[in-house]
Amino acid sequence: MEVVDPQQLGMFTEGELMSVGMDTFIHRIDSTEVIYQPRRKRAKLIGKYLMGDLLGEGSYGKVKEVLDSETLCRRAVKILKKKKLRRIPNGEANVKKEIQLLRRLRHKNVIQLVDVLYNEEKQKMYMVMEYCVCGMQEMLDSVPEKRFPVCQAHGYFCQLIDGLEYLHSQGIVHKDIKPGNLLLTTGGTLKISDLGVAEALHPFAADDTCRTSQGSPAFQPPEIANGLDTFSGFKVDIWSAGVTLYNITTGLYPFEGDNIYKLFENIGKGSYAIPGDCGPPLSDLLKGMLEYEPAKRFSIRQIRQHSWFRKKHPPAEAPVPIPPSPDTKDRWRSMTVVPYLEDLHGADEDEDLFDIEDDIIYTQDFTVPGQVPEEEASHNGQRRGLPKAVCMNGTEAAQLSTKSRAEGRAPNPARKACSASSKIRRLSACKQQ
């Protein structure tokens, strides 16, 4: 084909351009004929944790799935940006308080904090938690009735009371019990989460009196709706648990309003109706937990002794299953770290194939690490110290990083047969305790 000078094309009309061969290198194709290559998922490591896909996002930050490269346990990490926390009232204080509380709590029905990582340079905090497959609110939203069968609701409620009793025994008032803060594992274990607005009572406090509340409006008791200066913290949790039980068994809320002012007005009056299909035992329990006067409201001991709580409820309806993943529609909620794991395991070791967030990740503290002497050669063979940054567990980050890069360049065919977990650990520049 004859090559045409581009400067001469402006002298031709459209018809003349076609005659000189423009149609031979300008093609129009339908979008259905285009085959897009999927974007390669680059592996990203935060300390010893391999990052997966997004699980959810809230006002405080994002939650992603991660894999512990040492234990191969599935975890969830809450990623918090200090810049964003400053824009939220009491944001930083709530996060630090939640970390302090979770560090000393150990119960099967309370979410466990596994690790805390802090990135000084990017001003990011990573709260590594045990993995929960789904939230209770997500399960309720997945069915038209917006409720659980009585047998399933009873099982979840009993676990909620177990976890709540443990928190109260530790002198902690949750203040925000609701389905949105109750998570579930694949085995059906309920976990109380989000202790950001919780309050730890003084060890020598005479009672459970509280003065502040930041919980969700629909789950607040009349004493808070009416603006009382002080109130019983434990009875606030009992009320919120009662509203939660009402919601998961009926699909409704005892109090509603077009806006928060109308909602608080209705809560302050204390008038509500219980659907007739709840039955006398459940209705009596709800009335005891939603008692207007805090002094007359049920205690956890009274809830445990109630006939509806103690009764064994046979399954009359099919239980609400864990819904498919909202993004991938995966009904099994498979591990989202698998594509990243395959990338590390299947590809040659190259620095361009993975990302390490930083050479140094500070753990379990908000301060910069200490310094240790770096050896410097002298005339008599002895070495003197220069400062060298280290990880919180004493690992020399720069030395590990250099060693990792040197190993990656060394030709050794046997290394390709290593397991995925050992490869992740070798790529991680800074081991965590």
Score class of each variant (00 low, 15 high):
E2Q: 08
V4E: 07
L9R: 07
G10D: 11
E14M: 15
E14V: 06
V20H: 12
M22T: 15
H27S: 04
I29E: 11
I29N: 12
S31R: 13
T32P: 12
E33M: 12
I35R: 15
Y36S: 02
Y36F: 02
Y36K: 09
Q37F: 01
P38N: 02
P38D: 15
K41W: 12
A43P: 11
K44L: 10
K44I: 08
I46G: 04
K48T: 14
L54S: 08
L54R: 04
G56Q: 00
E57T: 15
G58R: 00
G58W: 01
S59D: 05
Y60S: 12
G61M: 01
K62L: 10
K64R: 11
D68A: 04
E70P: 00
T71F: 08
T71W: 07
L72M: 03
L72H: 01
C73D: 12
C73M: 15
R75G: 14
A76M: 00
A76F: 00
K81I: 08
K81S: 05
K83P: 15
I88W: 02
P89H: 10
N90D: 09
G91L: 13
E92S: 05
V95G: 02
K96L: 03
K96N: 07
E98T: 01
Q100H: 09
Q100P: 06
L101P: 01
R104G: 02
R106S: 12
R106I: 15
H107R: 01
K108L: 07
N109P: 00
I111Y: 05
Q112R: 03
V114T: 11
V114P: 04
V114C: 01
D115S: 14
V116L: 07
N119T: 11
N119L: 08
E121K: 03
Q123M: 14
K124R: 08
K124I: 13
K124L: 05
Y126P: 00
V128G: 01
M129D: 11
E130F: 06
E130G: 02
M136P: 00
M136Q: 01
Q137P: 08
Q137I: 05
E138M: 09
E138C: 02
M139K: 11
L140P: 00
L140V: 05
L140D: 00
D141V: 08
V143Y: 13
P144W: 15
P144N: 13
P144H: 02
E145R: 08
K146Q: 13
R147M: 06
P149G: 05
C151N: 04
Q152V: 08
Q159S: 03
Q159P: 04
L160Q: 00
I161H: 00
G163P: 00
L164F: 00
E165G: 03
Y166M: 03
L167N: 03
I172G: 04
V173W: 02
V173L: 01
I177F: 02
K178L: 03
N181S: 00
L183M: 00
T185N: 02
T185H: 02
L190M: 08
L190D: 00
L195V: 02
L195G: 05
L201D: 04
H202N: 01
H202F: 04
A205P: 01
D207W: 01
T209N: 13
Q214I: 06
G215M: 02
S216Y: 00
E223I: 01
G227A: 01
G227Y: 12
L228M: 03
D229M: 09
D229Q: 12
T230S: 05
T230N: 08
S232W: 03
G233A: 10
K235A: 15
D237E: 05
W239I: 00
S240V: 02
G242L: 00
N247H: 09
I248A: 07
T250F: 07
T250P: 00
Y253E: 06
F255C: 05
E256V: 04
E256C: 02
N259G: 02
E265A: 10
G268H: 07
G268C: 09
G268R: 12
G268D: 13
G270P: 11
G270A: 04
S271R: 06
Y272S: 04
I274W: 01
P275G: 07
C278I: 02
P281K: 09
L282R: 01
L282A: 04
S283E: 04
L285E: 00
L286F: 05
L286R: 00
K287Q: 08
M289W: 00
L290M: 05
E291D: 06
A295C: 10
F298W: 04
Q302C: 06
Q302S: 12
R304A: 12
Q305C: 09
R310G: 04
R310V: 12
K312E: 04
K312V: 09
H313R: 00
P314F: 08
P315I: 08
E317W: 15
P319Y: 12
P319Q: 11
V320Y: 13
P321R: 09
P323M: 14
S325L: 14
K329G: 10
R333L: 10
S334E: 13
M335P: 12
L341P: 13
L341G: 12
E342W: 08
L344K: 14
H345I: 12
H345W: 14
H345C: 08
G346S: 12
G346V: 04
G346P: 15
D348R: 08
E349T: 13
E351T: 13
D352S: 14
D358C: 13
D359E: 04
I360A: 14
I361Y: 01
I361D: 13
Y362E: 06
Y362T: 14
T363W: 08
T363Q: 13
D365E: 05
F366I: 06
F366E: 14
T367E: 13
V368L: 10
P369Q: 11
P369D: 15
V372K: 15
A377L: 06
S378N: 14
H379L: 07
H379D: 08
G385S: 13
L386G: 08
K388D: 10
A389F: 10
V390Y: 11
G394N: 05
G394P: 13
E396D: 12
Q399M: 03
T402Y: 12
R405Y: 02
R405G: 12
A406E: 12
A406P: 08
E407F: 09
P411N: 13
P411K: 14
A414W: 15
A414M: 14
A417G: 12
C418Y: 14
S422Q: 14
I424N: 12
R426F: 10
A429E: 13
A429Y: 12
C430S: 14
